[in-house]
Design a protein around this nucleic acid. Structure first.
Length: 899
RNA sequence: GCGGGAGUAGCCGAGCUAGGUCAAAGGCGCUAGACUCAAGAUCUAGUCCUAUAGGGGUCCGAGGGUUCGAAUCCCUCCUCCCGCACCA
């Protein structure tokens, strides 16, 4: 006999081939099925698949297959985020061109993806380094330029000397490069930007529409955008200079006792010219900023200048201090030490007066603060505004200043424009040339793409494009004279901002996408990826779609309808990473256990959103489980295609039939809600129930049919998770069609049998009780009596149930009042039952109160119990038994006597 | 500091968005039994305390509260994890 592993491997090869031939992974053109666009974040082609990928794609593929079974027209594509710095480095290391390296990596990864059995439609593959793709990056750039959404300016930018390129704000994490973790420096450079701040408000507001995004991701974007409402207030110095400041608290203006400038502020720089002390301070502050981010001290220096508080004419000192950010607001602040903790600390250190102007409501004395009071309250020390609520004062003070022309209401954002230039080779060239005559000239659309030269020596310092004459030298599109190309390439996040649109029409040549196809497939119904893109990729993509909408190229507002952020894969509680050397290679795992086992394990070990702990025993046990499934089929005769004759079914038969219906619906619901591991657990439980049923019940034609049907249902449910094995089994069972065509098992209401389910419950409870009693008495009974409660108790329970349902809250008196009359001679027993009912209504409410049913059910259960306990069972009526245990019997809970 | 998430039996982990059927699913580990020459695998039962009849007690980070009734709702506190971090 073949080993199970061999079986798996054979099935993998065989079905992968058959699926490919059948074209079931391609969207069903022209069908009227509802569309479903399922997307995983396209990977950077590093050459090897890691566990994170493996998990991501296992989740995605199971959803894709499930949705196809459920009758959706599924678009499930894959592609490559193939531009980027690591490739350039790898290429140098391996002495090969980045292009060749990339293509080799793609090939390798594709093979690994195939070995997992992922059901992508490879006809739609895209890769950002393909000319046919990045041409449209350039096209978008030109469009952005036309709309003033792309511009070049000299600015202080983040520079990573390790990567030898600049970075966008989003790509700096805690002062370090997101990719290589080295410290980021500030540099003044002339760079290209996308004007994402233009869309700040919309990006913020529309977050609310994204109902099926994780709250966490929305919150992160919200914080990143960082909108704050306030006013820009114009302060004058005693020398007549004007210094605008931004504040969100105009209501505290009377408490402003000094001003602070950022070290990079224009006036700071001017002052440094003639003052060594100031110059030195500024230099030091700048250096500190770049290196030691954690330092919290508020260092500052007095400028010798004074400003004038515009509301009360007070003369206030102006300082330069490192805690004021040049990049936020105007780079200068009005300091209100009484109501801002940072200002408070600074004032303490420099002996500046602290004047409270807002006191908490109801408080009397409010002087001598220990810390700043930052909440709302009532104004004090504020002339005409005293006694006013801070909220109202905010408005009035602002309006008053506005009238004098000393303030304007402003909204400020933390979000900065997106710096898209990169001084690296392996990226999409920015389609611009520089001409001495005409200046900066965009490359005309019909000359796109500006091709990235591929026969080039990349092992040089700096950007290799600068050394490549044939690339560099060009004609000016306007005057025809000599010109030089822009050598910066685009941030690769531009590539990934619209790739999901390209999948809709990957071969379209007239435009980045065909609008009709876009209309059909977008938005993405389900996006799956890592949390690390919470801000970067997900915000840039949203921005792109909004711009495209304004260009009239699409109608949607948001690209991704639902977002799922998967958890990490851990080993011994730690994140797997190359640097820690604790990686488990998916390739080895597939080799050893097969693709189906690997997929099954990673999906069953934890739900997609959570972290998952890798475990050798875990995958081993799943391998065994699947082997059991396989063996079960091997040893079974199959006749699932014949109709079941319910007339000839006993209670248990009907129960299994009923379960078979329900489990399909339950598991489907779990999958819809990404509770995949729950669903798999239910399936396993169902499978074990089936086996028990087969082994424990009498061999009848119906049993065989019911078992087969159950097995068939199980196998179909297994398909999204372990598709090869399940397809193999399915055909082994005598079916010709592919599971994909047959679809998800639909439940038949007519086959759902609540009585049978109740019967099974009764059996289980009874069995548990008998075992329990056996355990505490340590008796091995030779005879068991099972006693149905007296008939009147059924009636009494029923009445109590009615009462409980009527009553707002359980009331002992009311229950007894009505029941006492009904059963005058049972008052003592009744009061016990009623007490129980009041104490725990749930325990009474779930009872089955059908005496007839219980009696006949027990008769049917009898034989099964006898087999289970290998002893004689006698079913009796309490009315016929003289024993206190018989008196204790209740509906749904028969008395038990072990003899 | 701000924000988000979480604290459940030896461990992992459901349940907690609709309070009662929760001593609290499932898995792992452990114990006993079956099987076996034996081990492993598998199957069965047990695994908070107590009890030779299905019961009782205590329990879901700590402490209060609401309720006839709380793991589930409210308040306070403690601890852990994650994200942002001097954004005026």
């Amino acid at each position: 006999m073949k080993s199970f592993l061999e079986t798996l491997k054979n099935a993998e090869e065989k079905w992968r081939e058959r699926w490919r031939e059948s074209g079931i992974f391609k969207p069903d053109e022209g069908s009227d099925k509802p569309k479903y666009y399922l997307l995983e974040m396209y990977p950077y082609p590093s050459g090897t698949l890691h566990m994170g990928h493996m998990r991501n794609y296992s989740i995605g593929d199971s959803i894709a297959r499930f949705k196809r079974m459920k009758g959706y027209d599924v678009l499930y594509p894959m592609g490559w985020d193939s531009f980027g710095l690591p490739t350039e480095n790898a290429a140098i290391e391996n002495d090969i061109s980045p292009e060749k390296w990339t293509e080799r990596c793609i090939e390798d990864m594709k093979e690994q993806m195939d070995s997992l059995g992922l059901s992508y439609d490879w006809d739609r593959e895209v890769a950002s380094h393909w000319k046919g793709y990045y041409k449209w990056d350039q096209w978008f750039f030109l469009k952005f330029l036309e709309r003033d959404l792309a511009y070049k300016k000299e600015a202080e930018v983040n520079y990573c000397s390790e990567c030898e390129t600049v970075l966008a704000n989003e790509q700096v994490e805690g002062g370090r490069c997101w990719r290589c973790d080295s410290l980021v420096e500030k540099k003044d450079l002339d760079q290209w930007f996308f004007n994402i701040t233009e869309y700040a408000d919309e990006l913020l507001e529309d977050l609310e529409e994204l109902e099926d995004w994780p709250e966490k991701v929305k919150k992160m974007q919200q914080d990143w955008i960082g909108r704050s409402e306030g006013a820009e207030v114009l302060f004058e110095t005693t020398d007549g200079e004007e210094i605008p400041v931004f504040t969100t608290r105009p209501d505290t203006l009377y408490g402003c006792t000094f001003m602070v400038l950022a070290p990079e502020h224009e006036i700071s720089e001017e002052l440094a010219e003639g003052n060594d002390e100031i110059e030195e301070f500024i230099e030091r502050a700048k250096r500190l900023k770049a290196s030691v981010r954690e330092q919290k001290g508020k260092e500052g220096i007095f400028t010798g200048k004074y400003g004038v508080n515009p509301v009360n004419g007070e003369k206030i000192p102006i300082y330069i201090a490192d805690f004021v950010l040049e990049t936020y607001g105007t780079g200068a602040i009005m300091a209100v030490p009484a109501h801002d903790q940072r200002d408070f600390e600074f004032a303490r250190e420099h002996d500046i007066p602290i004047v409270p102007v807002i006191k908490p409501e109801g408080e009397e004395d409010f002087e001598d603060l220990d810390e700043a009071y930052e909440d709302e309250g009532v104004l004090i020390n504020s002339e005409d505004y005293n006694g006013m609520d801070s909220e109202k004062a905010w408005e009035e003070i602002t309006s008053a200043l506005e009238e004098e022309g000393k303030a304007t209401r402003e909204i400020n954002y933390r979000l900065r424009d997106w710096l898209i230039s990169r001084q690296r080779y392996w990226g999409c060239p920015i389609p611009v040339v520089y001409c001495d005559e005409c200046g900066t000239v965009p490359v005309p659309e019909d000359e796109l793409p500006v091709e990235l030269p591929t026969d080039i020596d990349v092992d040089v310092a700096g950007n290799p494009l600068k050394n490549d004459e044939s690339f560099l030298k060009t004609e000016c599109p306007e005057c025809g004279g000599e010109a030089e190309r822009e050598t910066d390439t685009m941030d690769t996040f531009i590539d990934s901002s619209w790739y999901y649109l390209r999948y809709c029409s990957p071969d379209f040549e007239e435009a980045p996408f065909d609008e009709g196809d876009l209309e059909k497939w977008m938005p993405v119904d389900q996006y799956i990826g890592g949390i690390e893109h919470a801000i970067l990729h997900l915000m840039y993509s949203r921005f792109f779609v909004k711009v495209l909408r304004d260009m009239g190229m699409c109608e949607m507002e948001e690209p991704f309808e639902r977002l799922l952020t998967q958890g990490m894969v851990l080993l011994d509680g730690e994140k797997m990473s190359k640097s820690k050397g604790n990686v488990v290679d998916p390739g080895n795992m597939i080799e050893k256990y097969g693709a189906d086992t690997s997929r099954y394990f990673i999906l069953s070990a934890a739900d997609p959103r959570r972290e998952v702990e890798w475990s050798d025993e875990g995958i081993e046990s799943k391998f065994e489980f699947l082997r059991k499934v396989w063996q079960t089929v091997e040893e079974s005769d199959f006749d699932g295609n014949e109709d079941i004759d319910l007339e000839n079914c006993n209670l248990r038969d009907r129960y299994i039939v009923s379960r078979t219906q329900r489990v399909a619906d339950e598991v489907a619901e779990d999958i819809e809600n990404f509770r995949i591991s729950d669903g798999l657990k239910k399936m396993e439980h169902f499978f074990d129930e089936l086996l028990k049923y087969r082994d424990e019940s009498e061999e009848t034609p119906e049993r065989s049919k019911i078992f087969s049907k159950g097995l068939e249902t199980y196998v179909r449910m297994l398909y999204p998770f372990s598709p090869h094995l399940s397809e193999e089994i399915w055909h082994q069972l005598g079916n010709d069609e592919l599971i994909n065509e047959v679809g998800w098992p639909e439940s038949e209401d007519a086959l759902i049998d609540e009585r049978a389910e109740r019967g099974e419950e009764l059996y289980q409870k009874l069995r548990d009780d008998i075992i329990h009693i056996k355990n505490i008495t340590e008796k091995e009974p030779g005879h068991i009596r099972v006693i149905v409660a007296e008939k009147w108790k059924f009636k009494a329970f029923e009445l109590i149930q009615e009462k409980l349902n009527e009553m707002e809250k359980p009331d002992m008196g009311a229950i007894m009042g009505d029941l006492g009359g009904e059963f005058p001679d049972k008052k003592r027993e009744l009061s016990e039952i009623a007490q129980k009912a009041v104490k725990n209504p749930g325990k009474i409410l779930d009872r089955d109160v059908d005496h007839e049913f219980e009696t006949t059910t027990l008769d049917q259960i009898k034989a099964r119990l006898e087999r289970e306990f290998e002893t004689e069972i006698e079913i009796m009526k309490a009315e016929d038994v003289e024993d206190e245990k018989a008196d204790r019997a209740e509906p749904g809970k028969p008395g038990i006597i072990l003899d």
